[in-house]
């Protein structure tokens, strides 16, 4: 449906979901226009929470369990699934787990395809988060694709990163060594009813102690909701502390730089697509790219 800019802006200001949904589509299809629209809207700082972990670990389920216990909050959910590198198509199935909240007035769930981005996010993730901050949400949960180690980009986007682990994973510890450990602000071990969970808990605790890291670990069960209240409380406390001590402001400053970098990268990528591939000389290709970039800028 065609909507004018002023319709969209007015619609969002009046809290109409349909217009906000359109803004998110613009984030995906035309980020420059989205940034322009967003700059015309009032923003309200929301806690941006990334949730990452390998496939099948229960990322959507944990978000659903949080939704179950957050009736009084306004929450946004960004669920990212991979696009096919061959066809560009994508199956966005994360919603299935959260569908019982689809009609909730306070929650807004939106699926994104990774559209060629590596790092487990969507190319428009920065814009999408900013957009959510114009819609008056308290927190935004960002569920990454979950391909493991490469999902570290989330640390540049979110204020808080939750790394989700499951005792069924097996090689979780191996995986953590490889990078997720660096980005985790909170660890959550899901499926606390599994007897192996306690073992994973103590293993992880040991590793963290050895590397002198003070990162909280939670045991949760997304079916029964055990441990979820605690997790929610910790997230809230952490956010207000970050607001108070200025660390959020610091993070957000860095985030702006990353956002600009992402925009520039996209532009450069597009320029490379226009370069004639007949030549073999790398240097020449490079020169031409720089020339084109300079012209564009």
């Amino acid at each position: 449906m065609q909507m004018s800019e002023s319709q969209i802006l007015d619609g969002i200001r009046s809290g109409n979901r349909k217009y906000f949904a359109k803004l998110l589509s613009i984030c995906e299809d035309d980020p420059a226009k989205a940034n322009h629209l967003i700059s015309n809207l009032e923003k309200h700082t929301a806690h941006l929470i990334g949730i990452t972990g390998s496939p099948g670990v229960g990322k959507s389920s944990i978000i659903n369990a949080i939704l179950d216990k957050s009736d009084d909050k306004r929450l946004g959910i960004i669920a990212i699934d991979p696009s096919s590198p061959f066809t560009g198509g994508a199956l966005l199935g994360d919603r299935i787990r959260m569908q019982s909240h689809a009609t909730s007035k306070n929650f807004f769930i939106r699926s994104f395809a990774s559209r060629g981005t590596v790092g487990g996010l969507s190319p428009s993730i920065f814009e999408a988060c900013d957009a959510f901050e114009t819609f008056g949400v308290d927190s935004v949960f960002i569920e990454t694709v979950g391909v493991g180690q490469s999902d570290v980009e989330i640390a540049n986007v979110a204020d808080t990163v939750i790394v989700l682990l499951s005792p069924d994973g097996g090689d979780e510890i191996q995986m953590m060594k490889a990078g997720l450990m660096e980005i985790a602000d909170i660890f959550v071990i899901n499926k606390s009813d599994n007897p192996l969970s306690k073992g994973l808990f103590s293993k992880l605790k040991n590793i963290l102690e050895m590397s002198k890291k003070d990162i909280p670990i939670f045991l949760t069960n997304s079916i029964t909701g055990d441990g979820i209240d605690n997790l929610i409380k910790t997230l809230e406390k952490r956010f207000s502390l970050m607001l108070e001590n200025g660390s959020l402001a610091e993070k957000r400053k860095k985030r702006v730089v990353k956002h600009a970098q992402a925009i520039l990268r996209k532009k450069i990528d597009r320029i490379f697509e226009t370069i004639n591939a007949d030549r073999l000389n790398i240097e020449e290709i490079e020169k031409e790219a720089i020339r084109k970039i300079c012209n564009k800028l």
Partner: peptide
């Protein structure tokens, strides 16, 4: 007992 939710397999 609560209710079951299907996994996100397509």
């Amino acid at each position: 007992f609560g209710e079951y939710k299907e996994p996100t397999m397509i």
